[in-house]
Amino acid sequence: MQSIIHLINSYGYLILFSALTLELIAFPLPGELMMAYCGFLVYQAKMNWIVSIIVASSGTILGITISYCIGSTLGLKFFKKYGSYVHLSIDKLNKTSYWFNSYGKGLLILAYFIPGIRHITGYFSGITKISYKKFAINAYVGAAIWASTFISLGRFLGFGWNKFDVYIKKYIIIGIIIIALILSIIYIYKKHKKNIFLY
């Protein structure tokens, strides 16, 4: 992480954009920590809050779009055969499939907050041929929410940004539960809205 901090200090937005693009293509990079540190730099007035969120969101969007295109082009057979070489094993794909079946396409918003899942949701969306429009609406909104959350958190914590793990473990679970409840309510409403209006 120290080397990434040094690079962010030297090249700022370029490293933020590039690192988040690579992370969403499945490179093992600490996205949340990077964004929290950028939030700290915003706190110090060395970076701009709005620009940081736009750059982070754009890098994330580019990365997940590339993974969507790769998944759509190569298909399930390729990943069954070679997925384990790029950390996309059948077990991970099955786990993602379970989450998608439980929460629908709204998982594309929620997935950014789930380590190990966000890295493969783009591939999975492409493999399962989710339409680009539906993918983009959910994934791009999720990218903006994810980037805004962690950059704002780093800004709020200031010099305590490096303790954000303590806060995130406490609040991320609450956040996931709230988002899951919202998605469940939306799903139930869509599925049963005719019956609801009958009463």
Rank of each mutant, 00 (worst) to 15 (best):
T128I: 12
I90N: 04
L157V: 06
K95E: 10
L93G: 08
V141F: 15
S97C: 00
S131C: 10
I114R: 03
G126K: 11
T128M: 13
S125V: 00
K92P: 04
N138W: 07
F150P: 10
V141C: 13
G106Q: 00
T128A: 12
T121Q: 04
L108V: 01
L93S: 02
K95G: 06
N162M: 14
W99M: 11
I90G: 01
F124I: 08
A111E: 09
I145Q: 13
S131H: 07
N162V: 15
I145R: 14
T149A: 14
F150A: 14
A111M: 14
A139V: 05
L157D: 05
I130W: 08
A147I: 14
G106T: 03
K129E: 09
S148P: 06
A143C: 14
G106L: 04
Y112N: 01
L93K: 06
G160V: 02
G122T: 06
I120A: 01
A111F: 05
I117A: 05
I109T: 03
I127R: 08
G106Y: 00
G106W: 02
A143E: 08
I90M: 07
W146G: 14
L93I: 15
G126M: 14
T149E: 08
G142N: 07
W99K: 03
W161Q: 02
G154D: 13
S131M: 09
F135V: 06
K129S: 04
F135H: 11
K133E: 09
Y132E: 05
Y98H: 08
F113M: 06
F159M: 09
K134F: 06
L157I: 12
T96N: 08
D91I: 10
F124N: 05
W99S: 06
F113T: 01
G104H: 04
K133I: 15
W161L: 06
R155D: 11
I137M: 07
N162S: 15
T121M: 12
G142D: 05
L108A: 02
D91K: 03
F113A: 02
I137T: 01
F156Q: 09
